[in-house]
């Protein structure tokens, strides 16, 4: 299966550096996300994968280097431009991060009302329903997050990310902590989303089944740098023991 890579770059990261105190987490990352591509980022836990994507939405401020999202440079970005960038990017958090004082409906409505233009009550309801149907959970609409299982939370998190129709999606370990069947469903959902909305995604994971399902291209982080990037085949055929240890 040969996967085409579009040349148009939607996120351009150059020599990105980020430390916490004396701990250098990212030490010169250079990476690009192309249009309509699923880029998988691999790396041991604690290698700075979450830090990397949090820098992309400016939740963490990088120390040095540059991040360009579309035409916006994130270093010293102005408030108004940052709002534009965040409207373009959807973020699925590792813990799903559903607001636990709100119902599922309110969770989605919150994202919708704060990231899009004003919608009428009917339009909002319709968009919410559509998003929940996309993730196969229309019945959960009036549940509280505490009533949902881990897998359902991840899916509602995905629905909340998708309801605003972002051009770029960042997935932080979408399948970690889920059973194999649910993991498989989430991976398929990532592919379906891409087929339907033609968005570009960065997917952080160490679930190799998920990698095999979704990856158009893979980048591996080690010691704060990109250790290798390439196609799934290149990774599978690599003889390097460090890389092999991920794919065993």
């Amino acid at each position: 299966m040969k996967k085409e890579v579009n040349d148009k770059v939607v996120i351009d990261i150059k020599d990105l550096r980020k430390s916490f105190g004396d701990q250098k987490v990212l030490d010169g990352i250079t990476l690009q996300l192309h249009k309509e591509e699923n880029l998988v980022v691999l790396g041991k836990s604690g290698s700075g994968k979450s830090v990397l994507i949090k820098c992309i939405v400016n939740l963490l401020k990088h120390d040095a280097g540059s991040i360009k999202v579309g035409k916006h440079e994130l270093t010293d970005i102005k408030e108004d431009d940052l709002i534009e960038v965040r409207k373009k990017i959807g973020f699925l958090f590792q813990s799903a991060a559903l607001y636990d004082s709100m119902t599922v409906r309110e969770n989605l409505a919150f994202a919708l009302s704060r990231l899009s233009k004003e919608f009428s009550k009917e339009e909002t309801d319709q968009k919410i329903m559509e998003a929940l149907e996309n993730v196969g959970l229309p019945d959960s609409i009036d549940k509280m997050p505490s009533e949902l299982s881990g897998g359902m939370k991840k899916r509602i998190g995905l629905a909340r990310t998708l309801v605003v129709n972002p051009k770029i999606i960042l997935f932080d370990e979408p399948t970690t902590g889920l059973d194999p069947v649910t993991s498989r469903e989430i991976s398929d959902l990532i592919n379906e989303t891409k087929a339907k909305f033609r968005n570009s995604s960065i997917i952080i994971t160490h679930d190799i089944d998920c990698v095999k399902t979704v990856a158009d291209r893979i980048a591996m982080i080690k010691e704060g740098k990109i250790y290798k990037q390439g196609s799934l085949e290149e990774f599978l055929n690599d003889e390097d023991p460090y890389i092999k240890s991920f794919f065993k």
């Binding site: 949090k54 939405v57 939740l59 709002i83 965040r86 409207k87 990017i89 973020f91 958090f93 590792q94 813990s95 991060a97 559903l98 607001y99 636990d100 004082s101 919150f110 994202a111 704060r114 990231l115």
Partner: peptide, 20 residues
């Protein structure tokens, strides 16, 4: 406790990326 758990479970981050 409430804000602390919102911080730990990334709900505050989620709010921020929702432009809130």
């Amino acid at each position: 406790a409430e804000l602390g758990s919102m911080r730990v479970t990334e709900q505050i981050d989620a709010m921020e990326v929702s432009n809130t």
